[in-house]
């Protein structure tokens, strides 16, 4: 990891990686979305409204995976003082927030025709909303800390502490009675209660959205590093004029 402690070396890797992630992601998303919307048969109970799962499920995973990444970067920031860790965590936060919001929005749109309600305060919905608010809080905290010239230590502690919400989201449908149904896909047991004919576009959209997520994080990181360089150059110029 410390090989990338040098921003120049990181940028050398990040520039092409951004485009690889972006184009590969779109390459997976196009057949995934097309397959999910037009090729798969409708669900036996919900009909066509179940098709939203090809966006909703990846959005939920990435909303949670995003915080895991943010927390991992925060640990690297606190423990190893990796110079790019804070940049990475800060770049992940807005992208994760967007996916968490996408999960909440698609879930709401899905809930209206199936359950009969846009929103209910059940365990799964509420814990996911809390994750979205945690992202917003992290962004505010990191910005405030940076403005005061800090290294983002407080934001990192918040990022690590926030991981407590992840098991709550995951287990909410098992621990508590919820309106939200139980999990369809178990990674641990490698099982899925989604029939094969309906399942196959999901890995495509999940992979596609994951690559888009990575591309967006890389872009945010590059923008942040560029901003730092601009600031450093302006400072040098100002000192030179004096």
């Amino acid at each position: 990891m410390h090989r990338f402690a040098n921003p120049t070396r990181f940028l050398k890797f990040a520039r092409p990686a951004t485009w690889v992630c972006l184009s590969l992601g779109l390459l997976l998303l196009v057949p995934g979305i097309y397959g999910g919307l037009f090729i798969t048969p409708p669900d036996y109970l919900q009909g066509d409204s179940a098709r939203i799962l090809y966006v909703h499920v990846p959005a939920a995973w990435l909303g949670m995976a995003g915080w895991s990444g943010l927390a991992a970067a925060s640990i690297a920031q606190i423990v190893w003082r990796h110079p790019l860790a804070f940049v990475a965590a800060q770049a992940t936060a807005p992208v994760g927030a967007v996916f968490a919001a996408l999960c909440l929005a698609t879930g709401s749109i899905w809930g209206r025709p199936t359950w009969g309600t846009w929103w209910e305060w059940d365990g799964r919905l509420t814990s996911m909303l809390i994750l979205f608010f945690l992202y917003l809080a992290y962004i505010a905290l990191a910005d405030a800390d940076r403005e005061r010239g800090g290294e983002g230590r407080i934001a990192a502690i918040f990022g690590i502490a926030g991981t407590a919400i992840l098991p709550v989201i995951h287990y909410s449908v098992l621990w508590w009675n919820t309106l939200h149904q139980g999990q369809s896909i178990s990674f641990v047991r490698g099982e899925s209660s989604i029939a094969e004919e309906l399942f196959w576009p999901l890995p495509l959209t999940a992979g596609g959205f994951t690559l888009l997520f990575a591309a967006a994080v890389l872009m945010f990181m590059r923008a942040e590093l560029a901003r730092g360089r601009v600031e450093a150059r302006l400072r040098r110029q100002a000192e030179g004029q004096r």
């Binding site: 669900d43 799962l53 359950w115 009969g116 209660s193 989604i194």
Partner: peptide, 16 residues
């Protein structure tokens, strides 16, 4: 108020 709750299984109609 009545809300419908569905389960975690998704499948095409003929299998129902």
């Amino acid at each position: 108020t009545i809300l419908a709750k569905h389960d975690e299984r998704y499948m095409p109609p003929p299998l129902e």
